[in-house]
Design a binder for these strands. Structure first.
Lengths: 112, 112
DNA sequence: ATCAAATTTGGTTATTCTGCCAAAAAGGAA
DNA sequence: TTCCTTTTTGGCAGAATAACCAAATTTGAT
């Protein structure tokens, strides 16, 4: 694999890591500051081993970093700029939802 | 599924769509303007049916839109703000690569 | 050294994703 | 209509993901 393909792969890996509801939710939760694994588990509700694996994927992608303090491991945001593009995605999704709602209400009206 | 979970899912879907090398490459290629499927195929090199499916994933996520003109179908960027966050990701990945290179050269020095 | 708490790792199963091929659709031109 | 080009769809095999459970690891406390 040449350097360009590797570079492309690294970028895609970041998006892939964010492309799962639980992982995205945890990343959003970390905007406010670091959290231990058990706190993050409470956020998403799945088995703690599942959460641990998700966190590792985010760490491997470079989005999060971790630090052990005592028996806990705290994860925090390493790639700060995700916050920017998450807000842009939220706006976009919000717009799409509004459009869908508008279309739905119109089809209701026309079917009366 | 409640509204929040659905909303989360929609956002994750966008990242998931961008989380594949071929799809990311095509999206980047579309920054400059619309392209037909055959042009996009040339960019990534896989079978045209594979490319078509990738494009559909990006369209379903809301990132791209398509328009038929004659026998060609032209895809273009619908979610303009991806450009912003892609540049942030590029910077980030570039930094990480530099760090890795630095670490590699240091370990070479120390092993002499 | 032993025990308990937090986290990761290994293993299994079910699901989803990818990529290719062949076949179908849709349009334009003769 | 028939043929040709472009694109999508259907189907299949192999690869990758995700979730859970159980077992291992790490650290702190007794």
């Amino acid at each position: 694999m040449d350097a360009n393909a590797y570079y492309l792969e690294l970028r895609a890996k970041i998006f892939k890591a964010l492309g799962h509801p639980s992982r995205l939710k945890m990343v959003e939760g970390l905007f406010e500051g670091e959290r231990c694994v058990c706190e993050l588990q409470a956020m998403v509700g799945s088995d703690i081993s599942t959460v641990s694996k998700h966190l590792n994927i985010l760490k491997e992608a470079g989005i999060l970093q971790d630090e052990r303090r005592g028996t806990n491991i705290y994860y925090s945001l390493r790639m700060k700029c995700v916050a920017n593009f998450l807000s842009c995605v939220e706006d976009f999704v919000g717009q799409r939802l509004e459009e869908q709602i508008k279309m739905l209400s119109q089809s209701k009206l026309s079917s009366r």
